[in-house]
Design a protein around this nucleic acid. Structure first.
Lengths: 180, 180
DNA sequence: ATCTATGCAAAGTTTTTGCAGCACG
DNA sequence: CGTGCTGCAAAAACTTTGCATAGAT
């Protein structure tokens, strides 16, 4: 059982917030349309702020919290208030264009989620690294539990908590450095 | 597809905090011993407050938050401060005698977890009802992902979010009550 | 007797809310 | 034009922290 990823099972992601906006233009366009449709559906207003927030989110990679998003927008010269950020995030989460996670630290983390393969997370409890993975069995569980308990399941969140290889290696190195 | 529970797959639990302490005496004794061992192991003090908190937790059924635990203890005439509750909960979670959950509302929820079958949760996003279920496949996923990504997995948390039958029924009743 | 854990309250974080004014429809 | 959305800041909600004191070892 080598660590070879025959199936592209998972991929690490570091939280670099580079600006690779060019490649994502098409996807952004799709998402804008979906958001517009949602707003019209619910009779909500299509304000510049809402679209600015959506775009900032889709320009980001990886997870982020409200403060990071807010600061990121300020740095790009986009003026919005925190209240609007919270408000719009709720809308986007409700629609499923963004997903919200609550890992250990009680600080909500968000992530864009349209057109990305549904995935779950492994969290290192030592260094707080987050790695993503996919497993098709989860979908089966979701369907089965929904039927059995008569719930209309909309989404799920599976987090595995443990210690990553790096941290275990560091711990081992540290303990082997302490012999008499 | 009847809702019959052939396998005892899941059980609803309401948050009644009845005092059925008599039956749980044996279990409580075990837990006290484990906690004592843990405290001795880490060179921590065995204070009355810590045991009082442990007992309050094991006298409860279902989920609770810090405030509920704190108030519950006050009502029983047990005097502890919130700081000590937080402190002790951390110890218990670390040891695995209590598990901590973060459902949507960022309010940490806790639950006793020694000697109870490992289970996961379905949460109704309308009424916030929580139902528990077990599925053996999750263990398999946990093992597989741990091996593939070289994590030493310690625990997991799977939450399914959706709308329960009751809330769907209510919604249906409401919409059928609005015709001209 | 020592040194840690407790208790209280104050500070810190994160999120929510109220009200005036602007802007979407 | 009217109502909903934004922005600001104040408040709420939850958790953590500092310091004096009581208590476990």
């Amino acid at each position: 059982m080598g660590g070879s990823s025959e199936t592209g099972y998972a991929a690490k992601h570091t939280s670099s917030a580079a600006s690779q906006a060019t490649l994502n233009t098409d996807k952004l366009e799709e998402v804008r349309k979906l958001f517009t449709a949602h707003l019209e559906n619910k009779g909500l207003r299509k304000t510049g702020e809402r679209y600015a927030i959506l775009e900032e989110i889709y320009a980001r990679s990886g997870h982020f919290d409200v403060e990071e998003l807010y600061v990121g927008m300020k740095e790009r010269g986009l003026q919005v208030s925190r209240a609007t950020v919270y408000n719009t995030l709720d809308l986007l989460v409700e629609q499923g264009l963004v997903s919200k996670h609550q890992f250990g630290r009680n600080l909500a983390q968000y992530e864009k989620s349209y057109g990305y393969r549904q995935h779950d997370h492994v969290i290192c409890t030592e260094c707080h690294k987050v790695v993503e993975f996919c497993d098709p069995r989860i979908h089966g569980i979701q369907t089965m539990v929904g039927e059995l308990l008569n719930f209309h399941i909309l989404h799920h969140s599976l987090n595995l908590y443990g210690i990553c290889g790096d941290c275990r290696a560091q711990a081992a190195a540290r303990s082997s450095a302490t012999p008499a």
